[in-house]
Design a protein around this nucleic acid. Structure first.
Lengths: 360, 360
DNA sequence: GCCAGGTACTGTACCGGTACAGAGTCATTT
DNA sequence: AAATGACTCTGTACCGGTACAGTACCTGGC
């Protein structure tokens, strides 16, 4: 007994293969009676439905879109922002009847998912333009939307206004009277601790944009921050760098952080050093993750709307998909989503007396 | 200018289409010289590689396996166990050169991923046997491995020895002298608070197994627990149920919890009621998530090896895949992974005096 | 000098569908 | 009575590859 295909059913019912195909895929193309008969025969034969692989070839669409992430997934899933985004993307895609395929980058094997997996389009999340996988995807001319990364020419993008958010948070500190300001942001794996401002090269697009934003405000006020870096993982690295910042002779009265997670390490370091937040030290995070309100004190931070980002990315991608299908021009918009400074309890006025004592 | 296919390249180089195919897919089938020439021509024409969809049809394999989860992903990603498992699965699959496709269950649309997406096999995580999506997958006769769920006949499974873990944790309490024991476990959405023991029907396979395990030990000791339920979300529900338990006249001296998250809510409720852990109350969690050591006091809990579970599931699935390909018999093993009781600071001897006073 | 066995390439027959342009049939319009 | 059009169903030509069984040629062994 061979496999059941459209032809098997067609023979059984005594119609053409095309009619059986229509029974499944275009119900309006045949009478209800016949269709019922066909479906009954199909069911009887144990036919499940048109073979997805064959259909994908014939139709030119697969019903799945890919998602490329920089790191191994275990890495990415340790990050609240990435996880939340991914989940939200999957849910939004579900609404469009699309499945989400996770593309492991690299592929030491002869198999490179970005080259070898069939999909209708792809979301590229936090990947540099130099990524090999992105190169494959581009060569395939797959409909593509980049998210939270350095824009690539001719590709649609969704980004968050990291720069404006960072600017606002720095401005907030300035308005509170802070002048000795530390920055704890994300570096490459080999970067750790306080670094020369001229040499700072944060990791990733968001890292760069946030630094630019902080600098926008601080430069304007003539304030030169002290910058410390730490790789994203392990968390301890951020703690160590935070501690370095807080043990400077000219200890900052406030620290701007790359993320809420970094900020939590600053809080921990502050606690361990006997510093009160916000009276001795103000701390600002980024993202407004759930952590922000769990921390003691609750964190002043910059909120980004991750669900909104996912929604924007999915709808932009489906737009590109549709344009590709219709043969119309494919949008290559660069969306920039707004952020919002959320002031909570971790920031307060600069401690003037102490600052003077130390500064003199 | 049409699309570049194998034929385009074959014509250009003056060889057969088959030779071009071999140049890409079976390098040993042609001379290095010719292969280089073919690849150069391909590159020149902007050919990316064999079309994945066509290849999938011809070869009968797609390079991706699916993963079916009960809930929406946003739901699942709120769960540390599920997230960690998912990430680990993806990473292990990467090692086998496979991508992971997330199958949204249901599909209100005419599109049902479980039926319509091409894949080589599928992991089914925490889905009941009554799931429609599982039914589709079974009808497709896809190689399949179930994880953390009620075993389905003829399907390979990976489960954790929840029952033994629960038994051990209850035993631990008994050995510490506890006789008034509360249980806080997972219920369906409409179940909340203390319920009649006879009527308890926990949610999901793990929930049922853990209850069985606790009962194994408690029954043997002639102890009848007080059982409270709470849906998995929101977390507040577990808190409310925990509070009910702790405000009983005959307050339990120890609480067994479905998960570390539940246990954390018990700790919180205990704190709010002025109870000291472990002197007034012992608490045991399940999973040994990172939360367990973040809590104050650190949690006694049952450790399950989630990475190991992912590894087992992936290698079992690849085994089934291989058997399918080779035409050999497909394994339908039911693996049961061991767990381990980890005793930390949240459990201690039953407070005898108090117990007597209240009990008298 | 003949045969065995390799290597390098080709021809044919699929894989299992879908798109699209007919071709009948029958009721309605002019 | 012929034309129009809606409704059903069919035939053919792909979609872009891969498997497998040749065929032709070359090399070495006896």
């Amino acid at each position: 007994m061979g496999r059941v295909t459209l032809q098997t059913i067609a023979d059984r019912v005594g119609v053409s293969r095309m009619t059986v195909s229509n029974a499944f895929s275009r119900p309006d193309q045949l009478s209800d009676d016949l269709r019922a008969k066909v479906l009954a025969a199909a069911d009887d034969l144990g036919y499940v439905g048109p073979d997805p692989a064959a259909r994908a070839l014939a139709r030119g669409s697969t019903g799945a879109v890919g998602m490329l992430l920089t790191d191994s997934l275990t890495e990415a899933f340790g990050d609240w922002v990435a996880t939340t985004f991914l989940a939200s993307v999957a849910d939004h895609l579900a609404g469009a009847g699309l499945a989400l395929t996770l593309l492991n980058p690299g592929g030491t094997h002869e198999i490179v998912p970005a080259r070898d997996v069939a999909m209708d389009g792809v979301l590229v999340y936090v990947c540099g333009p130099e990524s090999q996988d992105v190169a494959w995807l581009k060569r395939r001319r797959l409909p593509m939307v980049g998210v939270d990364q350095t824009p690539i020419d001719g590709v649609a993008h969704v980004n968050v206004d990291d720069r404006a958010g960072a600017r606002a948070s720095a401005q907030h500190l300035l308005e509170l009277g802070h002048r000795r300001i530390g920055i704890l942001t994300i570096g490459f794996d080999d970067q750790q601790g306080i670094v020369d401002n001229a040499a700072v090269k944060p990791y990733g697009f968001a890292g760069q944009q946030r630094l630019l934003g902080w600098s926008d405000a601080l430069d304007e006020a003539g304030v030169t921050p002290t910058i410390a870096l730490a790789p994203f993982r392990p968390a301890q690295a951020a703690y160590d760098s935070a501690r370095q910042l807080l043990q400077l002779t000219e200890r900052p009265t406030a620290v701007l952080c790359f993320s809420d997670v970094y900020a939590s390490q600053v809080l921990r370091a502050a606690g361990d050093l006997g510093l009160q937040v916000p009276s001795d030290l103000s701390v600002i995070g980024f993202d407004d993750s759930p952590l922000a309100i769990q921390l003691q004190p609750q964190l002043t931070t910059v909120r980004q709307d991750i669900q909104g980002k996912a929604h924007a990315a999915v709808s932009l991608l489906t737009k590109v998909l549709k344009a590709r299908q219709d043969g119309t021009e494919e949008p290559a918009d660069h969306l920039l989503l707004p952020v919002e400074l959320v002031v909570r309890a971790s920031t307060g006025p600069a401690a003037k007396s102490k600052a003077r004592v130390k500064a003199s």
